[in-house]
């Protein structure tokens, strides 16, 4: 564990707490893509099934359980508790266009051709693009509540912080994980436009609005 990965994980945790806080305090999931949240459930279950056969550390297991449980809870909040506040008519990104290519990438790029490893690779690629329905929705509405942008910023920062972690691990442990690194760079890249608007508008006290 190094400081970059730890801060990345904290940022990921923070993003979930911000999202839960947004839903609970506004009693609404307006502006949040159900499709993106559902993809995260798929990502976490696919990747963290290794809880059953791989033990890394208490920290690792606790985080995995938290990410699975919290992502399922968010789906429950969106689909049942605050269902009327979710507007499916603006959440229309076709997730098949993400799932199928990720499955193909996982079949081609994996560390071993077995079920667990292909599933792991699939979850890594899917995580990289799971934010697209949310960003697509943001693009369509052209604006977002401040709290939603803080959620997205924390979520984007999480994988961005893994990049210096991988550089650090390469130099200290000689360790390279080409699949995670490639997908992580793609994932961070998808946030660049968002980060630009977040830093130049939201953090300057303005509302998050995209140019028409």
């Amino acid at each position: 564990m190094n400081i970059f990965r730890f801060l990345g994980d904290l940022s990921h945790l923070a993003s979930i707490f911000i999202l839960l806080h947004k839903i609970q305090t506004t009693r609404s999931c307006r502006g949040i893509s159900f499709r993106t949240q559902a993809l995260y459930v798929v990502v976490f279950i696919a990747r963290y099934l290794d809880l059953f056969f791989r033990y890394v550390s208490l920290y690792n297991s606790a985080m995995k359980l938290f990410f699975i449980a919290s992502s399922c809870y968010i789906l429950y909040l969106m689909k049942i508790r605050y269902r009327p506040t979710h507007d499916p008519s603006i959440d229309t990104f076709r997730v098949e266009y993400l799932l199928a290519p990720c499955l193909i990438l996982a079949l081609i790029f994996n560390y071993k051709f077995n079920f667990a490893e292909v599933l792991w690779s699939f979850s890594i690629w899917l995580e990289a693009v799971a934010i697209l329905p949310q960003l697509f929705m943001l693009q369509r509405t052209g604006e977002a509540e401040n709290i939603t942008t803080h959620y997205l910023a924390a979520l984007g920062a999480y994988r961005a912080l893994y990049i210096p972690n991988w550089i650090y691990r390469y130099f200290t442990e000689g360790l390279v994980d080409p699949i995670a690194v490639t997908a992580g760079i793609v994932q961070t890249g998808l946030y660049l436009d968002f980060f630009y608007v977040y830093f130049t508008k939201v953090l300057q006290g303005q509302k998050f609005e995209l140019p028409a």
């Binding site: 990965r5 791989r54 890394v56 990410f67 560390y111 893994y162 994980d177 080409p178």
Partner: peptide, 10 residues
């Protein structure tokens, strides 16, 4: 050598 990835990250 072989790529040995430990999957010790989240």
């Amino acid at each position: 050598g072989n790529v040995v990835v430990q999957h010790d990250e989240l």
